[in-house]
Simulated scan of single mutants.
Amino acid sequence: MSAGLVLGMSAGLTAPALAQAKIQIGCTATSDCASAMVAVDEGIFRKHGLNVEMTPIAINSNIPAAILSNSIQVGGPTSTVFLQAVDGGLDLVAIAGASVMNPTSNTAIAAFVRNGITIKDPKDFIGKKVGAPGLNAFLHVLFVKWLVEKGVDPKSVNFVEVTFPTMADIIKSGGVDAVLTAEPFVTRMSNAGLGSVGARYGAELGRTDPIIFYAASRDWAEKNVATVKKFR
């Protein structure tokens, strides 16, 4: 076999391999990253020459660090996590939209309260231990905003981090008095008889802010302009 043919074959193999460099997308266990999940399952990314894999991230506020460490190339941080990360000096950029608040998504957001705890109005959260899927993440910041609007000092509530997948177990064990969550976790915990909805604070706020968008490091985005275009 001639050297020219070998080089030709190598070039032919290298180009697709480079085009198929794997992209890890990190998201928490919510439906906000459904667009990427569907694109992976239905082969939409593959059709555009991208080799993409979803990577579960337990707490949303860990996503910026995962991006900068290159554990993932693209992440789905909530808008609050993204803005705080950038304000703190992390060089991240948003590359595509994912989800925004609307009447349907707002109704899906709730403070779910375990059995034995009675919540009739916002002040009943004072002194309670409330699990949030990431301190300063979207659901936590929204709840703090709701408390402030209702005249309750957020510092009077004891917030702890609880991942979405473990919420049912920690509610059942009594580890927290309530969790800040959304569908389908609200329905699952209700059907399991673990408690009830204490507040539909998302619906009460009625906002239209971005919830999650896809972000990357500025360095990666600038070096992979064509990939970002295909991702979109």
Rank of each mutant, 00 (worst) to 15 (best):
A3H: 11
L5Q: 15
M9A: 15
Q20F: 14
A21D: 13
K22Q: 15
I23M: 03
I25P: 03
G26P: 00
D32F: 01
A39I: 04
V40F: 14
F45A: 10
G49N: 10
V52C: 08
P56K: 06
I57C: 00
A58M: 10
N62W: 03
A66Y: 00
A66D: 07
F82W: 00
G88A: 05
G89H: 04
D91G: 08
V93M: 04
G97R: 03
A98V: 01
S99F: 00
S105C: 13
I109H: 11
F112G: 10
N115W: 10
G116R: 08
I117R: 11
I117H: 11
T118K: 11
K120S: 15
D121S: 15
P122T: 05
I126F: 10
G127Q: 00
G127P: 06
K128A: 04
A132I: 00
A132E: 01
P133Q: 02
G134K: 00
N136Q: 07
H140C: 00
H140D: 02
V141I: 05
V144H: 11
K145W: 07
E149H: 12
V152E: 12
S156W: 09
V157G: 05
V157L: 08
V160A: 05
V162A: 08
F164R: 07
T166R: 10
D169W: 13
I170F: 14
G174T: 07
V176K: 11
D177E: 10
D177R: 09
A178R: 11
V179R: 06
E183F: 03
P184G: 08
S190R: 05
G193C: 01
G198N: 01
G202F: 02
E204P: 10
D209Q: 04
D209H: 01
D209W: 00
P210L: 03
A216R: 03
T227E: 08
V228S: 02
F231T: 05
R232L: 14
